[in-house]
């Protein structure tokens, strides 16, 4: 079977500096995968290249064997919380509805069915009572729940999330993880950029360790070892990749 997410020969460079270098990796269907690595390792760039938001120098990305263009309706994206203006004059339910915009199509307005789904997604993340709040009036955890609800109503098969636990309290983090696990249980594939090494084993069953190159990737049990962590996080590890 084709992997859910397949990257081959991917190199991304800004001017003369490589940000991602010769990335090859596969993520199988139905896993909850973590992408971990130090700051500046290219985690966000990897997701952005996958979603066609930055143009790679070489390489290709396939989703279930097909290119992004053919699959983009089956892919959901949760950006970093800091990437939007939380002061924007819009309500919680409005933001969640944005996830449906791709399905609704140009010019058309959300119909009753869209609203039903939006409210359902809000219910799933326990945010229904807050649906009329302006988004600035939420805590960090609540904002992240809204973003997750927005991804849920995209009804995708593959979810990309960029640091969903950043600035979130412990309780919300647990709730979010439970949700991600139930997504996985229903056959979805979830790929999460993550930075807390302590929780990797607890949350994920698949892990990609990245520091501009793929240092290691595979099932957490076999790949997430002390040796690999050291190679990922110590900058001179890049040199130690040298052979012989």
């Amino acid at each position: 079977m084709q992997p859910a997410f397949h990257v081959e020969d991917l190199t991304v460079a800004y001017q003369q500096n490589a940000v991602l270098w010769d990335i090859d990796l596969d993520v199988p269907f139905g896993v909850l995968a973590g992408i971990i690595g130090p700051n500046g390792a290219g985690k966000t760039t990897l997701i952005k290249a996958a979603l066609n938001l930055v143009k790679p120098l070489t390489g290709s990305v396939l989703f279930a064997g097909k290119p992004y263009r053919a699959m983009h309706k089956r892919i959901a994206y949760v950006p970093q919380k800091g990437s939007v203006d939380w002061d924007f004059p819009t309500t919680v339910q409005d933001v969640v509805m944005m996830g449906r915009y791709g399905h609704i199509g140009w010019v058309k307005r959300p119909n009753a069915e869209d609203w039903r789904r939006a409210l359902e997604a809000l219910e799933q993340v326990d945010m229904l009572p807050f649906r009329h709040r302006q988004i600035a009036e939420l805590s960090g955890g609540q904002q992240q729940r809204v973003f997750l609800a927005r991804a849920l109503i995209q009804e995708a098969d593959l979810y990309f999330m960029d640091e969903p636990f950043q600035g979130v309290d412990v309780k919300t983090e647990q709730a979010l993880v439970e949700l991600l696990k139930s997504l996985k249980a229903s056959g979805k594939t979830v790929i999460v950029v993550h930075h807390d090494l302590n929780t990797v084993r607890k949350y994920f069953d698949w892990v990609t360790m990245l520091n501009k190159k793929v240092i290691a990737h595979g099932p957490v049990d076999t790949v997430f070892t002390d040796a690999n962590i050291r190679r990922t996080y110590l900058s001179d590890s890049l040199l130690s990749v040298e052979r012989d």
Binding site: L53, S83, M98, Y101, P110
Partner: peptide, 15 residues
């Protein structure tokens, strides 16, 4: 709705 989403979250809009 297109104006709203491209103003609020351009990355999501383009996805």
């Amino acid at each position: 709705k297109e104006l709203k989403i491209t103003s609020f979250d351009p990355a999501l809009a383009s996805v």
